[in-house]
Nucleic acid binder design. Structure first.
Length: 582
DNA sequence: CTGGGGAAGGGGCCC
DNA sequence: GGGGCCCCTTCCCCA
């Protein structure tokens, strides 16, 4: 007995889920586009994907091999078995690009389709035949180099370059009666969709023996994979300069979710970073469904709840946040996105990336004044809409009076421009070094910075001692450091720009490590697991802290009342209770 | 209802 | 680049 449409219906459901981002557990980054998908589906369609998704939740594809438009077709194909070609996509060029992508991704069926199509239309020799070792090897190597999710690592259970012999060969006997607009792959499970058939049974087990089904709970990522996963967080991690770093941020953060059809909109960079979301609250909420994370404590139990707070004044009911393929994008104030925590609440507002501390700017004395003064500028990083301008420019209401109609302001030099284009052109003239030098010289230091210098910089102890042990002094705030690298790192905090953007939400950071850590929360990567209760954390320190819950250790003692605490921060909070006039 | 404590999340920053 | 720590904040529980 066999249900004739079972497989078809199943795929249909999966594709619909993909459209909503429901249960999607992997993000594929292609240039400036984000695509959400299901690991199982990808793994079933390509052994290459299979090896990638095993350890990573975020995959970067080589943009030389595939562009967002092509990948959208590829993804459609994977989920439907159909190659839907619009008029402009059915060109030979498009099939050629598809073939390249298919070869690169080891989607042999798709490659065969494209090859066949191209052969019919031109008869010219075709590149990228899957079984051809030369070009394909190059493609793979290329991808391994560029993809952060390369399976080539020592912990990888898959060979870096899976042998073609292990691969079912593409079905060269595909029906030759394909329409021009739609191409089908034999959908019966018995036909040559070899990689599908082969992979299907292995998806779960292959995904890691001994590791629970990840489902949506990305937080269950195994510790050993954290490294690669974290690496994946920074597809552009080689970018040092603010200019280059800003590109991906601006664009990815600007991605629209046009949604129910799909995804990965690749040309949706809007000048004001406005995102049109067709997501319904239900859609968003759906993302919080799925296998709950391990919960053995009451605290863990609340991880599946939607956060009750939101940055930028949005209320928790604002669940129709912009999504990119179901990925909530935008500055976040929340915890893990989508998957495990189910509480991703990043979003993009019109004003875009506004940091929490920026919102609260100045409320507490330790807030960094440059943030309180300028952070909104950063928030408009995308406002300039331009690639290189993202870190430099902003459009901030507070500055409008000062700049008149020139609402687009270059932060480093303070010049205002009437349009983002002009600003972008201007920004190109800045270099990081120039920026640094200018900043260092205090050219753009605001008064708040000076106040900060008074508040925070004064090192404890005699100045002579300080100068001897910490000879490297910040010219902006007078803080001193032991070595020049630390000083330079510190001085970046005075930059009015932040070189390290989050590729998911676009939030900017002064340190790459902070950004990487932040990205972990997007993806729910929690490499540090408590052996006692299974609870997982993004940071080692948190785990150490948490372990005191089990050990009962309370190393922080209040000198006033003798109260003991497991967390230092709680002691501090407690001390405030003693000192605050109440 | 309120305040305090416990536990946890996030970002900044120094080493 | 990562670890560690600081601070702010939130959420829940409970007295």
């Amino acid at each position: 007995m066999e249900l004739p449409n079972h497989a078809k219906q199943l795929l249909l459901q999966l594709n619909q889920q993909r459209a909503k981002g429901f249960l999607c557990d992997v993000i594929i980054v292609v240039e400036n586009a984000l695509f959400r998908a299901h690991k199982n589906i990808l793994a079933a369609s390509s052994i290459y994907f299979k090896s990638l998704v095993l350890h990573d939740n975020l995959i970067n594809l080589d943009t030389e091999m595939v562009n967002p438009s092509v990948f959208r077709q590829v993804l459609d194909f994977i989920y439907t078995g159909k190659l839907l070609s619009s008029s402009d996509q059915s060109s030979e060029q498009n099939f050629s690009a598809l073939l390249t992508a298919a070869s690169y991704l080891q989607l042999h069926d798709l490659a065969a389709l494209c090859r066949k199509k191209l052969k019919r239309s031109s008869g010219k020799p075709l590149p990228g035949k899957p079984s051809t070792p030369g070009p394909l090897s190059r493609l793979r190597l290329n991808n391994q180099r560029l993809s952060s999710s390369t399976p080539a690592g020592p912990n990888n259970h898959y060979p870096p370059t899976p042998s073609e012999a292990d691969q079912p060969q593409p079905d060269e006997s595909l029906p030759d009666k394909l329409s021009d607009d739609e191409m089908f792959v034999g959908s019966s499970g018995k036909t040559g969709n070899g990689s599908n058939g082969n992979s299907n049974g292995n998806i779960s087990s292959g995904a890691s023996p001994g590791e629970p089904d990840l489902g949506l709970d990305l937080s269950k990522k195994s510790p050993h994979s954290a490294g690669t996963a974290t690496d994946a967080l920074s597809p552009h991690s080689n970018q040092e300069s603010p200019q280059s770093a800003s590109v991906s941020t601006t664009n990815s953060a600007s991605l629209d979710d046009s949604s129910t059809t799909l995804q990965g909109v690749d040309t949706c960079v809007s000048e004001n970073m406005e995102l049109n979301s067709s997501k319904t609250p239900e859609d968003s909420h759906n993302q919080s469904e799925g296998p709950p994370p391990q919960k053995k404590t009451r605290h863990a139990a609340r991880k599946n709840e939607w956060p009750k707070k939101d940055a930028l004044g949005l209320k928790s009911e604002d669940h129709d946040r912009p999504l990119v393929n179901g990925v909530i994008v935008g500055p976040k104030d929340g915890r893990t996105s989508g998957a495990g925590g189910g509480s991703g609440n990043s979003f993009v507002s019109d004003q875009t990336f506004q940091c929490k501390e920026e919102e609260e700017g100045g409320e507490n004395g330790q807030d960094h004044s440059e943030e309180s003064g300028q952070s909104d500028g950063e928030s408009g990083g995308g406002a300039g809409g331009g690639h290189h301008s993202a870190n430099y420019v902003y459009r901030q209401e507070g500055f409008e009076p000062a700049f008149g109609d020139n609402l687009y302001v270059c932060i480093p030099c303070g010049k205002g421009f009437p349009s983002s284009e002009q600003l972008n052109a201007h920004v190109e003239t800045h270099t990081e070094d120039e920026l640094y030098i200018k900043e260092e010289g205090g050219t753009f230091v605001k008064e708040e910075d000076e106040e900060e210098a008074e508040d925070l910089s004064a090192p404890v102890g005699p100045s002579n001692f300080v100068s001897e042990t910490r000879p490297f002094k910040c010219t902006v705030c007078s803080k001193s450091y032991k070595d020049p690298a630390t000083l330079r790192q510190h001085e970046k905090s005075h930059w009015l720009t932040r070189p390290f953007p989050c590729n998911i939400c676009g939030k900017m950071f002064t340190q790459r490590g902070t950004m990487t850590r932040h990205m972990r929360s997007h993806l729910g990567l929690k490499p540090f697991a408590c052996e006692e209760c299974g609870m997982r954390f993004t940071r080692q320190y948190r785990l150490t802290e948490h372990m005191r819950v089990h050990s009962g250790e309370k190393p922080y003692e209040c000198q006033l009342c003798g109260g003991k605490f497991t967390q230092q921060r709680n002691l501090i909070s407690h001390l405030r209770m003693h000192t605050s006039p109440s």
